[in-house]
């Protein structure tokens, strides 16, 4: 179940990467970051959180044990 949620979040993130809605917006966020760049910097942080979730809820314990067994 948790693996399905992680995969679903991956797919959602993939679609969120295609941010056509900011395509011609050059407004500055915090006075220096163009909107399109600020959004994608936030996207990078979201990827890191997804990585943490994957490790927490979908870690391949069986594969790890298989590799370590003598």
């Amino acid at each position: 179940m948790s693996k399905i949620i992680i995969w679903s979040l991956f797919v959602v993130l993939f679609f969120m990467h295609q941010d056509f809605w900011w395509w011609n917006d050059s407004e500055l966020v915090f006075g220096f970051m163009p909107m399109g760049l600020a959004y994608h910097a936030g996207f990078s942080i979201a990827c890191s959180i997804l990585g943490w979730l994957a490790i927490r809820f979908a870690w391949p314990h069986d594969l790890e044990a298989f590799a370590e067994e003598k």
């Binding site: 991956f10 990467h17 941010d19 399109g36 994608h40 890191s48």
Partner: peptide, 21 residues
């Protein structure tokens, strides 16, 4: 322009991490 970041960097954050995993 700044589209360079989304083009290579942010998508790499998603795809690379998934491939490492």
């Amino acid at each position: 322009g700044i589209g360079t970041y989304g083009l290579m960097a942010s998508i790499s954050g998603l795809v690379h991490a998934a491939i490492f995993f």
